[in-house]
């Protein structure tokens, strides 16, 4: 496939990822595997590496606008990375079918909530209770575990968790998630790199990474300027799509 097409696709994936605070793997992995003549593992390796760059590009926009909670992001990343590690190890022993159905139910509920709930107001100085934070860190660990088990990125779990669990306004949730996904993707990306999965794809890497950096920056700018209702609805649409994919995965066993 022509590298210019890959670049165009990566810009679109980065745009949506930056806009919604995701890594972009949801879009770029199937696209690369279908049109890039490379294996799923190679696509996942490129996507993880590119999502670190996307996260860097989009999170700076959110940080500048004070829509990224660096403090919470660090704590989230700490527990989610530990969860992702446990999930990666567990994935060799556990059947994914039932987990896929449970995860589908969670994202269906999140999608409906995002589509129909009113956005939370932004208080001038936000605080969260200590007991709530402890619970949330535990949930972040479970989120990391699920993402490690099911091979889905963290963003699709973190944003609904912050919106529903911590009552974050949607743009602060996407902003904080944009920062976190770059940190959580690193562990996986290092493994793909050390295993040599990226060796035969080095001609595609520049087009994908450049596209996703450009798209991520644009997506971040769009994300802080768009009305929160639109962000919520686009995110809900993506969650319904992911719910469909998870049900299909579960039915395939």
């Amino acid at each position: 496939m022509d590298t210019l097409w890959i670049f165009g696709g990566a810009v679109c994936a980065g745009l949506l990822a930056g806009f919604l605070g995701l890594g972009g793997g949801v879009l770029i992995v199937p696209a690369l595997a279908l049109f890039g003549d490379i294996s799923m593992k190679q696509a996942a390796g490129i996507s993880l590496t590119a999502s670190i760059a996307t996260s860097m590009a989009s999170s700076t926009v959110f940080i500048k606008k004070h829509l990224c909670d660096l403090d919470l992001g660090l704590k989230l990343a700490l527990t989610a990375t530990a969860g992702g590690l446990s999930g990666g190890i567990l994935s060799t022993y556990v059947s994914n079918a039932h987990l896929a159905f449970i995860f589908a139910a969670f994202i269906l509920y999140s999608g409906i909530s995002l589509a129909f709930k009113k956005d939370h107001d932004l208080p001038p100085v936000e605080t969260y209770a200590r007991h709530k934070l402890a619970l949330f860190l535990f949930v972040a660990y479970i989120a990391g575990l699920l993402s490690g088990l099911l091979g889905v990125g963290g963003g699709i779990i973190f944003v609904p968790l912050m919106f529903l669990g911590l009552k974050f306004p949607i743009q602060r949730a996407t902003g904080t998630s944009a920062f976190v996904v770059g940190l959580t993707a690193t562990g996986g990306a290092v493994i793909y790199f050390l295993r040599g999965e990226l060796d035969n794809t080095l001609d595609i890497v520049p087009a994908v990474v450049m596209g996703m950096i450009a798209g991520g920056k644009l997506g971040g700018i769009l994300g802080v300027k768009t009305k929160s209702r639109i962000v919520r609805l686009v995110f809900a649409g993506l969650l319904f799509f992911m719910c469909y994919r998870m049900v299909k995965l579960g039915m395939a066993g």
Binding site: D71, L74, K75, A77, L78, T81, A82, G84, L85, G88, I89, T92, L183, T186, G187, G188, V190, I191, L194
Partner: peptide
């Protein structure tokens, strides 16, 4: 405490990388 959390993430990333390397 925040500085320590940042260091903790780095440590977990390194330990995680090594553990994944060993187990998977």
């Amino acid at each position: 405490p925040n500085a320590l959390v940042a260091l903790g993430v780095v440590a977990i990333l390194i330990i995680g990388g090594l553990a994944k390397w060993y187990f998977l």
